[in-house]
Design a protein around this nucleic acid. Structure first.
Lengths: 181, 181
DNA sequence: GTCTATACACCGATAGAC
DNA sequence: GTCTATCGGTGTATAGAC
């Protein structure tokens, strides 16, 4: 079995260099494993490594973002605050890019289905929280999508301007923007 | 001199495959020029090609987005509508990715300054229009940044969900969102 | 399960004919 | 200004020892 730590190290390479830029040499250096060892764990090579990295991210998001959003024992406002806190963690306050965005801008259509499922799950789960908060179905769906738009857009702008402020601002205002009547 | 059409063809490759994925073979095929011919026009190779592509994009945006925004003869609302119309054109209704976003997510720091200048120019120009519309300086700056965030975020989401609707919605609502009191 | 060594394709880039 | 041919380097992937 592959250690979680190894996958985490592989993830950093894909985040930083993109799919094409994540060479086996870089993946090897990041993990401390030789190329041949990587092929022992991922027989189908780089594509399987990227898929594992995506799965790892999916698991993290399910545990740290989706699950808290589903916790019906807590108030909607609290669940959304927990989401923004974890999103802030996931992207290191806007300093680290989103692996979903990085891979979706690539040309490897193989990952698009997996990315699409992850985005849909996030949006649908968030929309349900907003319905719990009293919003109608249509508004809830629209605002949930808007949340992802703002998070992803802020990550791009923060990187483009080399200034994390836009991201921090979005994260801070998001709960109130989502829940306003 | 290099034809504009050639640069446009080179641009499509970088948009689709990213910097690392835009190989000389693909650039050669897209333009119909041999690799050696590309080096005749761009002696410093791929890096110079990417820079030319960025310049081309910058020129297009200056002529079609920045200039209309600066046209003080027209009402702010009209200028912003013109911007959204051109943005819709630039990204083919949300079907084509933003070259700035694609390159900013890459690891080539060389382009970051050029990208940063393009984004700042867009934001500052838009903010001035919003001040013309009666908004205070701070709100204008904040909303101008928010416009870019929404456009970029919508492009990511549209691609991720394989559905241009989020982009179309953002473009449609943008003028009113920016100008509301 | 990890390594060294290596195969083979493709990368960016250049030489030189036309 | 375009081409063919080719270079050295690096990419992904594999063989086989330990």
């Amino acid at each position: 079995m592959v250690k979680d730590e190894t996958i985490a190290q592989l993830l950093t390479v894909f985040r930083r260099y993109g799919y094409e830029g994540a060479t086996l040499t870089r993946l090897s250096e990041a993990t401390g494993l030789g190329k041949a060892s990587l092929y022992h764990h991922f027989p189908r090579g780089k594509e399987e490594i990227a898929a594992a990295v995506l799965n790892y991210t999916n698991d993290w998001m399910t545990a740290n973002i989706i699950a808290p959003l589903r916790d019906k024992e807590r108030q909607p406002a609290l669940r959304i605050r927990e989401m923004t806190k974890q999103v802030n963690e996931l992207y290191s306050c806007g300093q680290k890019p989103c692996i979903l965005a990085v891979l979706v801008l690539g040309d490897k259509d193989i990952f698009h289905e997996q990315i699409q499922r992850a985005l849909r799950l996030w949006i649908d789960t968030l929309a349900e929280v907003l319905r719990d908060a009293g919003l109608d179905e249509k508004t809830a769906q629209y605002r949930a999508k808007d949340a992802i738009i703002q998070i992803q857009g802020a990550l791009i702008l923060a990187r483009g301007l080399n200034d994390t402020q836009p991201f921090k601002g979005v994260i801070e205002r998001l709960p109130e923007v989502l829940l306003k009547l």
